[in-house]
């Protein structure tokens, strides 16, 4: 590991969430009795088929979803809503179409009342860091999907959170763009040291990025297994050739196959 540093611990205790039945649809047990502890500066991937409640779990940590039972604690403090220690990256990017790249990246800081000059300076730095130099005054609709998510990532990093919550951030991107963004994400985090909770339905992505993979079952969403990845960091470019990589993928695939309804 070698990453025992400061930073908060995230603790999920007996978390349950049920979405009530709506017209023509049965009630859904999104989460049932989930216990999980995430260590400081750890990169945890929540992996599971669609509808297994992994996004609900992430939003519970973000303070955007209220649980029916159980609690989320960050460094021992009960989570009751969003907070400055956390920032989120969204699957559909959630960029404001009327704002240019710099204004979008600075939006989190703007909401926190940071003066315009300060926040734009910070945003400008992050636009460079995520590889979008020269696109400061482009609007979202002028950017490709991959570039839009770079903006989303820069917006989250701009508020300098201790915890980065990522909800299938690369799910909407093509395979090549996805790989590039995975590599760039790891490089960015190398220099920043954050706790990351990353939701994905790609086994490959979970193993490439995570320190641990939390495997979840669908309906009710429960933790089925937690796997230590144990691959070297920084991750080598030829990670596929590592025997552990193939072994992990095989194991995860077996597990997921057994879950098939």
């Amino acid at each position: 590991m070698g990453r025992q540093r400061g930073g908060p611990v995230i603790e999920l205790r007996n978390c349950s969430k049920r979405y009530p039945s709506q017209l023509g649809q049965a009630a859904v047990d999104a989460l049932e009795g989930v216990d999980l502890t995430i260590r400081p500066e750890e990169f945890v991937c929540l992996l599971g088929p669609s509808g297994c409640g992994k996004t609900t779990l992430l939003k519970a940590i973000a303070g955007l979803v209220s649980l029916d039972e159980g609690e989320v604690y960050i460094d021992g403090d009960l989570v009751t809503g969003p907070g400055p220690d956390r920032a989120m990256v969204f699957q559909d990017f959630a960029l404001l179409p009327w704002a240019d790249v710099v204004t979008n990246v600075a939006f989190g800081l703007e909401l926190r009342g940071v003066p315009k000059a300060t926040r734009e300076k910070k945003a400008f730095e992050l636009v460079q860091a995520v590889g979008l130099a020269g696109f400061d005054h482009h609007f979202p609709r002028q950017l490709s999907g991959g570039m839009q998510q770079r903006v989303g990532l820069a917006r989250a990093l701009a508020v300098d959170p201790q915890i980065l919550l990522m909800d299938e951030p690369f799910g909407a991107l093509d395979a090549l763009t996805r790989r590039l963004l995975q590599e760039d994400l790891l490089t960015l985090l190398d220099r920043r040291r954050k706790t990351v909770v990353f939701v994905t339905h790609s086994m490959d992505e979970a193993v490439r990025l995570g320190d641990r993979v939390v495997l979840m079952t669908p309906r009710p969403g429960q933790v089925r297994d937690i796997v230590e990845v144990g691959l070297p960091r920084p991750r080598p470019p030829d990670l596929e050739k590592h025997p552990r990589f193939a072994e992990l993928l095989e194991y995860l695939w077996q597990q997921l196959r057994e879950m098939r309804p």
Partner: peptide, 13 residues
């Protein structure tokens, strides 16, 4: 977009 609302809330709007 409801996504913009959720995003703003997540940043403490």
């Amino acid at each position: 977009d409801p996504g913009w609302i959720e995003m703003s809330r997540s940043f403490g709007a």
